[in-house]
Design a protein around this nucleic acid. Structure first.
Length: 437
RNA sequence: GGGGGGUUUCCCGAGCGGUCAAAGGGGUCAGACUGUAAAUCUGAUGGCAAUGCCUUCGAAGGUUCAAAUCCUUCACCCCCCA
């Protein structure tokens, strides 16, 4: 983040967040705008280390922290080294398996640099802060915790929280004492951050409401102070399903898990119904710019100006200019006409981004490589039967030219460049096969 | 500790001795239509040297010509009583 964040508190953050649709509910609608405009406040969001990378689901909270920082407030990103050991039952339908300590450590190591990308940690008084709740939670003994924290939270109240109730109402799964206790840990985090950083505000997904309010209650009892919080809406598509899901799972921010090309393609393919919301949620574009982009999009939806803009903005934000460039180059090549007359140099940057596989060149010799094997080797088909099906149904392409029979064999004549072949299954699944000597 | 219910192919969920690679739905994949959209329609959906063979119904044994289906033990989950 390059823009100056030292600017005085000129922006109406709450107003900004609400036109962007990032506010679900707040704990104090009436007073928040005033509180956040009278002086710099400290605001936090937590990220549990359930994987070694953040994904799109985390991006909402992260974006909100970013906007707070831009408005002159100080963001704290809390990595849940302690809470991650327990597992948050909120929004989960089943008891989760505990992660090993090693896995947690690795996950935290993966997440930290990503968090650093979105927040400015060196910009004076409102520099972002990154902390790990394991650092303070691990110092508690069980008895201490029960006396100091547990005593102040009422089970009666906890039982009424949605996250707990929904799990108790299920007949096929329960809720362990461990997960039930999660709320206490997060509640205490808030108190601790208040003590250490004068943090008064917590943001989280809508499933975090119960945890946030628990923290506020605890702070009132323990410290006699009033803290605040707000939730953002869940990132769902208009049909109610979770957004950011690909066939291989979540849409990750780590290029190792989701390549810049795949990331870019996800947004290019986004439903018309979602684009406007996503532009508001995730990009830094101003309100009038978003409106004019959407107007342009509606006048000629086929050009997908909105999707293109969204994909570009987000890919740049997450993967930088280089990532965006390769994603766009790959897109140009793949979604153009029949592929031929390329050279390896043109494809070089794309290799890392698109599923690709190297095979010995002699596989092309003689009779050639059966197309069925090629599809399986490339990963486009998960078995030979699957490959057979795809071809029979007319969904297999070599260099963007449809394969007409399962007997097809690939030879050097099918190379698109010196050493590479472009395979495709269906409308938009690509893989490269590279044949080195 | 006692009693009851459960564990089926990616998911949900039928099946309760053969006709079961296992209904139905969802998802997913492919095709048509399009705009790399949505909706809709069609087909496919364990593996393979494929009119057959192999692996699968929590795990291991057993009964039977034959088991996802019956018996035994084990593991895990849920509920109720203590």
């Amino acid at each position: 983040m390059s823009n100056s964040v030292n600017s005085p508190l000129s922006t109406d953050v709450i107003g900004e967040l609400s036109w962007r649709g990032l506010i679900g509910q707040t704990t104090d609608d009436a007073n928040l705008p005033r509180l956040l405009s009278e002086k710099q406040r400290t605001v936090y969001a937590g990220f549990d280390p359930t994987a070694d990378s953040l994904h799109i689901g985390h991006l909402m909270a992260l974006t909100i922290l970013r906007r707070f920082q831009k408005a002159g407030h100080r963001p704290i990103a809390v990595v849940g080294g302690a809470t991650g050991m327990i597992g948050d039952p909120s929004g989960k339908s089943e008891e989760r398996n505990l992660l090993s300590l090693d896995a947690l450590r690795a996950n935290i190591a993966g997440m930290e640099p990503q968090l650093r990308r979105f927040l400015d940690f060196d910009c004076g008084p409102n520099s972002a802060v990154l902390v790990n709740n394991y650092d303070w939670m691990s110092k508690f003994s069980y008895l201490e915790f029960l006396r100091d924290v547990g005593k102040h939270l009422s089970v009666n109240v906890m039982l009424t929280k949605d996250s707990v109730r929904s799990r108790l109402e299920r007949t096929d799964s329960g809720l362990s004492y461990t997960e039930f206790s999660y709320m206490l840990l997060q509640a205490y985090d808030f108190v601790h951050l208040y003590d250490e950083f004068a943090c008064e505000f917590q943001v989280g997904g809508s499933d975090q409401w119960g945890n946030i309010t628990a923290g506020i209650d605890l702070a009132r009892r323990l410290r006699g102070v009033q803290l605040y919080g707000c939730t953002c809406p869940l990132l769902t598509k208009s049909d109610g399903t979770k957004m950011g899901k690909t066939e291989s799972g979540a849409l990750w921010l780590s290029p190792k898990r989701t390549s810049p090309y795949q990331f870019y393609q996800y947004w290019i393919n986004l439903d018309d119904a979602e684009v406007g919301r996503c532009l508001r949620f995730f990009t830094d574009m101003a309100q009038n710019e978003i409106e004019s982009t959407m107007a342009e999009h509606q006048s000629d939806p086929g050009r997908r100006v909105a999707q293109r803009r969204l994909a570009a903005e987000l890919t740049r934000l997450v993967h930088g200019d280089d990532g965006l460039r390769t994603a766009e180059r790959a897109t140009d090549i793949f979604f153009g006409a029949e592929i031929s007359e390329l050279d390896d140099a043109q494809l070089a940057g794309i290799f890392a981004d698109v599923p690709s596989k190297g095979l010995p060149r002699d596989r092309l010799a003689g009779e050639g490589l059966p197309i069925i094997d090629a599809l399986v080797e490339s990963g486009l088909s998960k078995s030979k039967g699957d490959a057979r099906r795809t071809i029979t149904q007319g969904g297999a392409y070599v260099n963007n030219r449809r394969v007409d029979g399962i007997e097809k064999r690939l030879t050097t004549a099918d190379l698109a460049s010196e050493s590479t072949m472009v395979l495709r299954s269906g409308k938009k699944n690509y893989a490269l096969l590279r044949f080195d000597a």
